[in-house]
Amino acid sequence: MTEIVEQAIGRSRTARRRRKTGGITHIAVFLAPTVLIYSIFSIYPLIESLRLSLFDGQPDGSAVWIGLGNYATLLFDANWAVRFWNALWNNLILFFIHMIVQNPLGLLLAALLSLAPRFGGTYRTLIFVPTLLSVVIVGFVWELILSPLWGVAEGMMSAVGLGWLYAPWLGLEDSALTAVSLISVWQYVGIPMMLIYAALLSIPDELLDAARVDGLSGFAIFWKIKLPLILPTLGIVAILTYIGNFTSAFDLIYSIQGVLGPPDYSTDIMGTLMFRTFFGQQTQIGDIHMGATVASMMFFIILIGVTIYLLGVQRRLTRYEM
């Protein structure tokens, strides 16, 4: 046998060139565009922002290294700190309202939809519509509806005898943030609904049948079987809500309230603060270094949230094979 192999080896050297197996060029070709675009326009800017936050701009346009000086300014300088803590606090309130309104509502709707009622598909499709719309549009639609000028909201509430409850919520310091949050809930509830709905659907029917045979009622099945199985999805929903707070919330507030977070900064959040700092506004000129500092703070705050989620929450939420 060895002879045969040796002869064959000799022959394969002389044999006409054949295509070879192996090689990694194609792997590089497949990966290169994604890695390049992503690195240049997503990762590099992020790192560059972190770097910029360590410098201070000079009147002549140059920049000097000041270490964590900008962060000290942001956190401790009286003018900056009040805005920063206010914006962060408002962000947390926003998050809190989403967690207690949007996600339970999404869970409720998903649970109802998963019972496969008639017209379930239609409900699902329609409830998802606001999610598709630009926040700009959503913002104006609600501004018009809630506006005392047009009076649609007031008129409808009066029709059911609740007219006395009406107030121009978006314009009042006490209620503006809540109103904006609820508009955002209205817009985005479709996302948790869909994610949870999909998770509920992925629970095998046999498991539910088994529970039914074991004598569990519909409600008990939900609490004792379905809910534990979709906990990981609820975890994902929570972290998505958290991240969304620091990004998409800007668009809504910017389009409804503008960049100052009126009235009196009651709807000012990290996103608007960053935008203002970066680009300036009437009373203040833009400052890319402070803007980068605010952005970096947002990055760290998001990182803290994600870390808590990954280390604390996700670990404890067992993922079950289904």
Partner: peptide
């Protein structure tokens, strides 16, 4: 890929030859 030894088909050593050949 073969990590060691030889695969011979017909009278040719095929270790590095592409499947279609």
């Amino acid at each position: 890929e073969v990590s060691g030894g030889d695969v011979v088909i017909g009278d040719e050593r095929m270790n590095e030859v592409a499947p279609s050949d």
